[in-house]
Amino acid sequence: MQKLAGAGVFERVAPNHFAEQLRTESLSVGTYSIPAGGIDDQAPHHEDEIYVVTTGRATIVTPTGTEQVGPGDVLFVPAEEAHRFTDITEDLALLVFFAPPYSGRG
């Protein structure tokens, strides 16, 4: 058992911030922080992702749809699918699960 201290907590590091809290052979977990009014400039990843919104509000845009998101929402984004958070109206913190572990490319 391992407690992931600080996972899902917003960190104000300009312009955006990703901090990895756990890495195993099969998955990795981290926190992605985007400040209110910020720009999400991420590219598609080579891993499946699950996002859990811990704080903030935004819109996620993918080729398959657009959804407003807020605390408690859980999102699945398959590997290689383009996605971006827009209209970030409150500081956004996302707990991110990658499987397989995040490769750092994308």
Score class of each variant (00 low, 15 high):
84 R>H: 01
76 F>R: 09
54 T>D: 03
84 R>D: 03
51 Y>L: 09
25 E>M: 12
54 T>L: 13
10 F>P: 03
38 G>N: 11
83 H>C: 10
48 D>N: 14
97 F>Q: 02
45 H>I: 05
8 G>C: 04
89 T>D: 12
60 I>Q: 02
5 A>V: 15
66 T>R: 14
106 G>K: 02
47 E>W: 02
90 E>L: 09
106 G>N: 06
64 T>V: 15
29 V>L: 14
62 T>P: 04
27 L>S: 13
56 G>L: 02
13 V>W: 07
13 V>M: 10
1 M>D: 13
106 G>V: 06
9 V>H: 08
4 L>T: 04
58 A>C: 08
99 A>E: 08
89 T>W: 06
80 E>K: 08
14 A>M: 10
69 V>C: 06
54 T>N: 05
16 N>K: 08
81 E>Q: 15
20 E>Y: 12
89 T>L: 11
13 V>N: 12
74 V>R: 11
29 V>C: 03
42 Q>R: 10
3 K>I: 15
43 A>D: 10
102 Y>P: 01
33 S>N: 07
91 D>A: 06
93 A>G: 04
44 P>S: 11
5 A>C: 10
66 T>L: 03
82 A>P: 03
64 T>E: 12
8 G>P: 01
68 Q>L: 02
97 F>Y: 13
16 N>H: 11
22 L>V: 04
8 G>V: 06
